[in-house]
Design a protein around this nucleic acid. Structure first.
Lengths: 332, 332
DNA sequence: TTGAAAGCGCTAACAG
DNA sequence: CTGTTAGCGCTTTCAA
């Protein structure tokens, strides 16, 4: 049987009206058992696939959501995206993926495109959130708190401050007294939250922060991290622990240490953040702050679907707990 | 100025017909300089965003492509997807991301959905390729050769056999004589190609393959790899090198070796495949086969866009060269 | 250079 | 329970 592209042909073949076919497909309205049977059979035989453009035009609901992330290459984001995509697909939604590469300009363009695509909703990982295009699209903000005032929409994030605190605690409890903080100088505010956790732990232990051991990387990259640690070592700055705000950064730090003949955890202790594949497989295994990505994805999916159906959730801010996954890099 | 959602309102505001507005937007047909100017101004002021559903319905071209990958969490795929997405976006195309999780059923559903979404084209990483839904959609097959007969569409892959050969060569040249081959038993045929390269290198050196040292993992996971190596060690099988068909697998192998007090590369040499972040940051640094992902993405994008425009490329098969990135894991 | 109008495939009143 | 019909926003003849 030849292929068929419209509901009209199905209607003709089944000897009913297009309205009936539509009803059967969408389980709307009532129809006799036998009509349904007949229509379904024709649909199966003709391998008919409904046209989503037409449906989207008519109903203004596309069953497509946008996923805006900084960089899918980052393991933390890729596992988040994987879970989001699978959850959404289970509920009949497809996902447009948008990498902003941390560029505001690119992000703006993506938002614009998503709005043109008439997406049903958006999951947005971004520090910015004053896009007028998004006024009438449900949005879930994930992972990065907003820097702007307008706070409509739902926000989900990990307790980054606590994560920074836990990691630093671990280092201090193991006896470290001269801690490097290796973070990224980005607009991304949760880098800063992790740093605040670092400071809190230091303060509790009555330890002064050493400004020489505070390093801001221009970007999250193991190469930059490696260079930074190399530089510190060559300047003969003394330190016995490194708190990294990311596993990628921690991995770079490990390389530099190894290259300079230093052992982890014998000479220097290291902590990462995200508990990614990298933390598991790197060097001796990196102690890392675990974020509950599954929970994040599950919450985001559930809430966004609710919002798409018109229900505004009562709770609009979620902070997910974190815990420390201890590995060899801090085990003396 | 209030928001505007249709070309009709733009037309009214500009005092022209909808046809003219459409022409201006698409740079179609002719119109006076001043009409254009006026229309453009209105569009800017009203922040008008064209409705892609309507456009898609009318033209049958959605400017959306589907990216079907096994698992975006795999660094090799995530960097491929990143590059594909950015290339396509530069050309005005958005990307639907579909994780098949290596499940044929899920893959089939995704293909079906993509077809319903009326995508302009598809980049498909899959061993299967007999989907009747895809008969009239341009498709680029990437990374995994087809197992089926029907070979319409364009195929791009790395020279996996050569990669396996190079890695094995490296181990043999370093003096290894008892090689473990740690691969994944998947439908994915390039795992097998890498293994064939392994066999070729062995044959050239006149070395017999040891069946005890042939390991098929049920899935690509560092955990499974770790268990496998642990098991080999506990069975007291002797080996001095491990050829892994994936960096993830190599990372797992390293963990097992470390746990048993074995040093890399002093006691055992290890090679990976993909030259991912993991290879760079893991253990001592893993020697790994580098695939030219950028080139792959660039080719795929270019060819698919051509096909979308109706040109069938003359060359329908591309094999990309690989090279060995040597790191500490094989440096004695 | 511009406008009028048909129609892409679908859904949702409304009428029967 | 089912059919008729209007129209979503856009492009594209055809005519002016």
């Amino acid at each position: 049987m030849e292929k068929v592209k419209s509901i009209k042909e199905i209607a003709r073949l089944a000897g009913v009206s297009t309205a009936t076919v539509s009803r059967v497909i969408n389980q709307n309205g009532r129809f006799s058992k036998e009509t349904e049977e007949r229509v379904r059979r024709i649909i199966r035989q003709t391998e008919y696939v409904p046209n989503m453009s037409a449906k989207g035009l008519r109903t203004n609901r596309t069953r497509v959501v946008g996923l805006v992330v900084p960089d899918i290459t980052n393991p933390h984001f890729s596992s988040l995206v994987l879970k989001l995509e699978m959850n959404f697909f289970e509920h009949g939604y497809s996902c447009l993926i948008c990498n902003t590469n941390e560029s505001e300009k690119l992000e703006r363009k993506h938002i614009h495109t998503l709005s043109a695509q008439n997406v049903s909703g958006i999951v947005l990982i971004s520090g910015t959130r004053n896009y007028s295009e998004l006024d009438d699209v449900p949005v879930i903000y994930v992972d990065r708190p907003s820097r702007s005032q307008n706070s409509s929409g739902v926000m989900i994030e990990s307790d980054n401050e606590e994560g920074g605190y836990l990691a630093t605690q671990e280092l201090l409890n193991a006896g470290c007294r001269h801690l490097v903080i290796l973070k990224c100088l980005s607009s991304d505010t949760n880098q800063f939250s992790r740093y605040r956790g670092f400071q809190r732990a230091l303060a509790e232990h009555g330890i002064e922060e050493d400004p020489h051991l505070y390093v801001d990387l221009p970007e999250v990259s193991s190469e930059k991290a490696r260079n930074a640690i190399t530089w510190l070592l060559e300047q003969n700055f003394h330190f016995d622990g490194i708190m990294c705000t990311t596993d990628t950064i921690a991995a770079g730090a490990l390389i530099a240490l190894r290259e300079h003949g230093l052992s982890v955890p014998e000479d220097v202790l290291v902590t990462g953040f995200d508990d990614s594949q990298l933390a598991i497989s790197c060097g001796p295994g990196i102690t890392s702050v675990h974020q509950d990505v599954s929970k994040m994805a599950q919450l985001a999916t559930g809430l966004l679907l609710e919002m798409i159906c018109g229900k505004m959730p009562k709770q609009t801010y979620y902070q997910l707990p974190v815990y420390l996954e201890v590995r060899a890099s801090t085990r003396r």
